[in-house]
Every structure is written in C-alpha cells, then in structure tokens.
C-alpha cells in the first residue's frame, strides 16, 4: 500500500484529481450522514424545489446509520452500509457538487461516470468495523429528519477517518483492479 493522503473537508477539484483508486486516505473535518430513507427525502425535496438540509457542494456523504451512543460518547458504532442502494440518488447529488461518498460494495456505472464528469470520488470504509470507526468521530449532531432514527441526517466531525479510494475521478476502480490481480482462472 502506498502512502497515506490526508484530506480536510470541504474538498476541492484539486483534492479530488490527485486521488487514485487504491489510495489510503485519512479524512478530517465535517462530513454528513445519509442512507436510504434520507436520500429519498433529499431527492424529493429537490424535485419540489426545496432546499437540502445542507449544501452538498464540496462535501462528503457517509452512508451510515449509527447505533445509539453510549453515555459519554458522541455516537455508537458507525461503519458503512452497502452503497448500491444509493445508486438512484447519488448521481443527482454529484451533479450538484457533492465531492465524495463513503460506503461499501459496488456502485453503478452511472455513479462511476459521474465521478469522472463532475470530479468526485467514491471512498470505501471497512464494513463491520463500527466500533473502531466510531472512535474517529469526535462530534455528531442530527441536522434533519430526526424521525428517521438511525437514518436521520447527521453532521459528523471526524478526525483521521480511514478510507480507501474505490472509484477515482479518472475512471480507476479498486474492485476491478483488485479482482484482476487476485483472481485465479479455472
């Protein structure tokens, strides 16, 4: 594995363009959470011409629904959820200036193409590491859709949040590269 790249949000086109699939990145700053139900509402809001709960420009959305915080902690376990369920929504948000998504698993060809066209990156976080990842979250605050419980939109302050670049803005795809390297025929 190569060196670790440190990034602080919000992200610029320049930040994005230097990232390549397979790069290890530590993210610091503010990121936002959203999963199925929150995305559905955000897109409905856009269709009605309403404002989003936060301006997505330059931001990262983390696909996560944390478990309840234990006393004295800002958040409970907070690992990624499977990203393909956000395929119908992600392209619209990328077109509006969203710079990054954090999740796990594959996303659609359309998302990949949007990453290239609008200079965005799809990051992967390690699934099933909710306890470890929660320690990198210093603050958490619900900013919208509180009724959705674990699916509410949260503003997180993270420090050295570990991710890997899965789709970069140049068409690179970590999954494709990885499978090609380790697949054994027959």
């Amino acid at each position: 594995m190569g060196d670790v790249i440190r990034l602080t949000t919000p992200l610029t086109d320049e930040d994005i363009l230097k990232l390549k699939a397979g790069d290890n990145v530590l993210i610091s700053g503010v990121i936002y959470t959203g999963r199925d139900a929150a995305h559905k509402r955000m897109i409905e809001a856009l269709e009605k011409g309403e404002e989003l709960p936060f301006d997505v420009k330059g931001q990262i959305i983390y696909y996560v629904g944390p478990s309840p915080a234990r006393p004295g902690r800002p958040v409970g376990a907070a690992g990624p959820t499977t990203s393909y369920r956000m395929n119908p929504y992600a392209p619209k948000l990328i077109a509006l200036g969203l710079k990054g998504m954090i999740g796990k698993g594959k996303m659609s060809q359309e998302v990949k193409e949007h990453c290239q066209k609008y200079k965005a990156v799809y990051f992967g976080a390690v699934g099933g590491c909710g306890a470890l990842l929660s320690q990198r979250i210093k603050k958490a605050e619900i900013i919208a859709y509180e009724d959705l419980g674990p699916e509410a939109v949260r503003r997180l302050e993270v420090e050295d949040f570990p991710v890997i670049v899965v789709y970069d803005a140049h068409g690179g795809d970590l999954e494709e590269m990885g499978i090609k390297e380790y697949r054994v025929e027959g």
Binding site: G65, S67, R70, R73, A77, V126, G130, A131, L132, Q135
Partner: peptide, 20 residues
C-alpha cells in the same frame, strides 16, 4: 482492522457493527 475492531467492541466501546 477487523480484528482490532473486535477487541474494541469486546471492551464495550460500541457494538461490533452498527447494523446490530
């Protein structure tokens, strides 16, 4: 990372995974 996470969960930092 998965192994380290299991240790942290055992110490009750948070559940192993947020999807309980």
């Amino acid at each position: 990372m998965i192994l380290e996470n299991a240790e942290l969960a055992r110490q009750r930092v948070a559940p192993i995974c947020q999807d309980c």
